[in-house]
Design a protein around this nucleic acid. Structure first.
Length: 640
RNA sequence: GCUGACGUAGCUCAGUCGGUAGAGCACCUGCAUGGUAAGCAGGAGGUCCCCGGUUCGAUCCCGGGCGUCAGCUCCA
């Protein structure tokens, strides 16, 4: 038979051949599994009709197959060491795998080493994997006999007509739909990383299992690189760098609320100014609305019914109030203050003020998950035929901002959740409008069914940072509900009352989260335009203190954030301090520079830019700040 | 919110098998006036998270609370 292989052309195979024979014929040692249509198949499966895609570890699907088998190796090792342990589920994850297990006695981190050694043993034994299709009755009987209660629950939850399969390796058999590697020996490098609590099927009423995490790679080198990246992520952790760089802090008596220090507030204000500079030309008007409203407003908006658990509620003079978690209801009241004409649409409000959400205590995480935040929040009231224009402009804002930080973005289209309000027909209309814009822009996107807000479908944006980590940041949400709930109208061309549509968007998202992400993305070494201190002037000795102060004052007059470090320490010590503070430029002033009216400029990282005249230095700094240059670097071109 | 671990100087962390504690860095002072990532010397700094219990005595053991961390769930 003749099989079409993606990227390899047609291959002739004997009848009854398996995919492993195909891979062997092509002499490709690193193929782990194959994809035929939307199915992923093991190499031991007989060849079927249809074009074949070869999956290696470089392919996300191949990686999942590899680590799924690693999860089985973990389960096998655990059952050898703890025969009484009960297995739940063991899937691959983005960068590893886990297995949820109920141990008779909880295990601790110290037990991981022992389990890891047994896993190495299972790998060394190089068991071939086998797949069995079994009937529902057989499955129930098998796992009854094996005394695996969670597996029985899983089988019972399967649809009556589901194909039930098990996979075996050596003495170990697991309920699993696969697919898997063909041999355990392919897992050349693995490590268990942690153990944590997890509920069976995420049900916090059920038993708490222990989730054992690990990761696996085809080579030791890849495993080591993985852990290097984890170390690098720790080094960049904004919770460490933030206080270290004097940007922000937290206090036990205000969990989830940041103290913004002077240097951190510079980041905040610079980003808000950047946002404003992009949005103001599109007609967004910055406003400020109340932050505490009577419950009546939250009932109108629907927050009382759908968001109450996430709000701080309070009482004063026998009246119930709620602190705002979002700006939209306030902006609706603003819209309603006058009779609006179609000529005013799209009417756009922007607000950067504080929002408060009562996030559950266990979810708080530095700046990335807070209770007190500021968003680059906007609400646009528009006529239905303007949806495309407004959403397209918002997509342009996303591009402008994330390109500035060289962060690629991924678009998620989230559709109606179970807990939603409004008619199905309106939801259909909103969802198809968003999809139409995405398709018109020809952008790739993924659909997340059921992930929309309770008032409308949305586009969520995931940014990738310098370490390849992904962060949920921007959101653009379409809303047909709030205008109805607030009974909003505009007068159209024919003089008739019409209901406007709303678009909510936050492009940086929460400034708190965004700054947290940027701290990690840049490892605290911000580009010049964002850096809280842009230049540190460093006199060699007391004789140059005055000249240093004068240079700093001159730079400050040009809008450059410059300061003098005249501490009683040697130059080397102060250079090191500037480097640790991640200051983009150090301007050293000694006797030579005083006489020549120059400064010797050192770039963050160590490059010596030589002596620059004061005016030339200031001009270059100003230009690069205005251009939001992603540097440091390039302040002086080699050609200069 | 749930499960588990943790909470000692500004930071990173030792330590006390129950007898009120220590290092490095940072900070302050003095000497040294310095040339691109750590000069030398000295000093100050602690409610050992909070509240209760056990004990002659608790930072240490027990209980509760708060916070942090890792997960679960949720999300900007």
């Amino acid at each position: 038979m003749r099989i079409e292989v993606l990227g390899k052309g047609a291959v002739d195979l004997a009848d009854g051949a398996r995919y492993g024979d195909l891979v062997e014929k092509l002499a490709l040692a690193d193929v782990l599994a194959v994809a035929v249509g939307d199915r992923i198949l093991e190499l031991f499966r007989p060849v079927e009709a249809g074009q074949v895609r070869l999956l290696t570890f470089a392919d996300p699907d191949g990686r999942r197959v590899f680590r799924h088998t690693a999860a089985h190796v973990l389960a096998q090792a655990v059952k050898r060491l703890y025969p009484e342990a009960k297995l739940a589920i063991g899937p691959p994850t983005e960068d590893g795998f886990f297995y949820d297990i109920l141990f008779a006695d909880p295990i601790g981190p110290a037990d991981l080493a022992r389990i890891g050694e047994e896993m190495e043993q299972v790998v060394a034994e190089d068991h071939p994997l086998q797949r069995q299709e079994i009937s529902r009755e057989e499955a129930l009987a098998d796992f009854q006999r094996a005394d695996e209660p969670f597996k029985l629950q899983l089988i019972e939850a399967l649809p009556q007509d589901a194909l039930i399969t098990t996979y075996s390796q050596g003495e170990f058999t697991d309920l699993c739909r696969g697919p898997h590697l063909v041999r355990t020996g392919l897992i050349k490098a693995l490590r268990l990383t942690s153990v944590a609590g997890a509920y069976f099927r995420g049900n916090d009423q059920g038993p708490m299992l222990q989730r054992v995490y690990g990761t696996a790679f085809p080579t030791v080198e890849e495993l080591e690189r993985h852990f290097f990246l984890i170390e690098e992520a720790k080094r960049r952790d904004h919770r460490r760098l933030g206080p270290e760089l004097d940007l922000f802090s937290f206090h036990d008596v205000a969990p989830g609320f940041a103290f913004w220090h002077a240097k951190g507030l510079i980041l905040y204000e610079t980003l808000v100014a950047f946002s404003h500079s992009l949005q103001q030309p599109l007609g967004y008007q910055e406003v400020s609305t109340p932050w505490i409203f009577k419950t009546e407003l939250w009932e109108t908006s629907g927050h009382a019914a759908h968001f109450k658990d996430n709000m701080f509620l309070m009482e004063a003079e026998d009246e119930a109030f709620g602190v705002k978690p979002m700006n939209c209801p306030g902006h609706c009241l603003l819209f309603k203050e006058a009779t609006r004409s179609y000529r005013e649409l799209p009417l756009r409000y922007a607000e950067y003020g504080p929002l408060t959400r009562r996030e559950r205590s266990g979810t708080l995480h530095g700046l990335l998950r807070v209770r007190g935040m500021h968003q680059d929040d906007t609400h646009t009231f528009l006529a239905p035929e303007q949806i495309e224009q407004v959403v397209t402009e918002a997509l342009g804002l996303v591009d402008a901002i994330y390109q500035t930080f060289a962060m690629p973005i991924e678009i998620h289209f989230s559709t109606r959740p179970e807990d939603h309000m409004g008619e199905e027909a309106l939801w259909d209309r909103a969802e198809s409008a968003l999809e139409a814009v995405l398709q018109a822009g020809g952008r790739p996107y993924v659909t997340d069914p059921g992930e929309g807000a309770f008032y409308g479908p949305k586009l969520d944006f995931v940014a990738t940072d310098a370490l390849g980590r992904r962060w949920q940041v921007a959101t653009i949400q379409l809303d047909f509900q709030l205008p109805i709930r607030f009974d909003l109208h505009y007068i159209d061309r024919e003089g008739k009352e019409k209901t406007p549509v709303m678009v909510h968007h936050a492009i940086m998202g929460s400034l708190e989260r965004f700054i947290g992400v940027l701290v990690e993305h840049f490892a605290g070494a911000f580009p010049l335009w964002l850096a809280p201190i842009q230049v540190r002037v460093l006199p060699i000795s007391e004789k140059e203190h005055q000249a240093a102060k004068e240079l700093a004052a001159t730079l400050r007059l040009d809008g450059v954030r410059a300061e003098v470090d005249d501490r009683n320490e040697k130059v080397g010590w102060r250079i090191r301090a500037a480097e640790q503070d991640k200051v983009p430029y150090v301007a050293v002033i000694g006797q030579r520079e005083v006489e020549a009216k120059t400064a010797s400029v050192r770039e963050r990282g160590g490059r010596d830019l030589g002596a620059l005249g004061h005016e030339a230095f200031a001009r270059k700094l100003k230009d690069h700040i205005a251009a939001r240059w992603p540097g440091p670097g390039h302040l002086v071109d080699p050609a200069d």
